[in-house]
Design a binder for these strands. Structure first.
Lengths: 106, 106
DNA sequence: CGATATACTATGCCACGCGAGGTATATCGT
DNA sequence: ACGATATACCTCGCGTGGCATAGTATATCG
């Protein structure tokens, strides 16, 4: 269940979480929870990295006297999601290689 | 192409490479090359970790005056491959979440 | 009135991928 | 004859990155 396999999907999940509409840290974690658990100390560095990479932009909004940061997917971020769909083909080839039954034994 | 996504598949790929018959480091790298590139400094630590975890056993064989280490998949290792097939279902759910078109915009 | 939910941040550990470099033999091209 | 390439193993050390821990601050719920 730890599945470090999922670790390769962390970034892309965050991008997916803000695909439909802008969102903020706490909500992103809740939204993706059905698919994977991500702690805050994992998410926020990812958000900062994605921002630096130009995949999203940040906008601070006052909320209950505190700042809430809304993240918005950029065109580059959207492209990243498309690239991911392409890369997935290679991933599936690896998957099929792995589950392919040995030709003889077992 | 760097695709840290593939990093989650490194271990499992190595196990798959010795699934049909025992193999050794250099050959494993060549065998999985069509699917992913793995450097030696990545593979050998993985092999040691998999051995410590009991997923494979090692046997040294003299070859051209040098030792060649053959790696053999254990039952535990075979189980790991089966577990992987199960975990993959969760991975596919994440994949579908990511590529699912937003309900409204875009 | 303490616990829980909301919401963001900083610090520091440890796992790990991988580049770089080391050793040694065999083979192949020129 | 000799350098390059392939085979085959190994170690060291850097940088990235996931995540536990802990801190700050408000609102709500039992």
């Amino acid at each position: 269940m730890d599945t470090q396999l999922k670790r390769g999907l962390l970034d892309i999940c965050v991008l997916a979480a803000i695909k439909t509409e802008d969102s903020y840290g706490y909500k992103i974690i809740k939204d993706i929870k059905p698919y994977m658990t991500m702690s805050e100390s994992t998410l926020y560095p990812i958000l900062r990295r994605l921002e630096e990479a130009g995949h999203l932009t940040v906008r601070s909004v006052e909320h209950n006297g505190r700042l809430r940061k809304y993240y918005h997917l950029t065109d580059a971020g959207r492209q990243k999601l498309k690239d991911f769909a392409e890369e997935w083909k290679e991933i599936m080839e690896i998957y099929e290689y792995v589950i392919r039954e040995g030709n003889d034994n077992e």
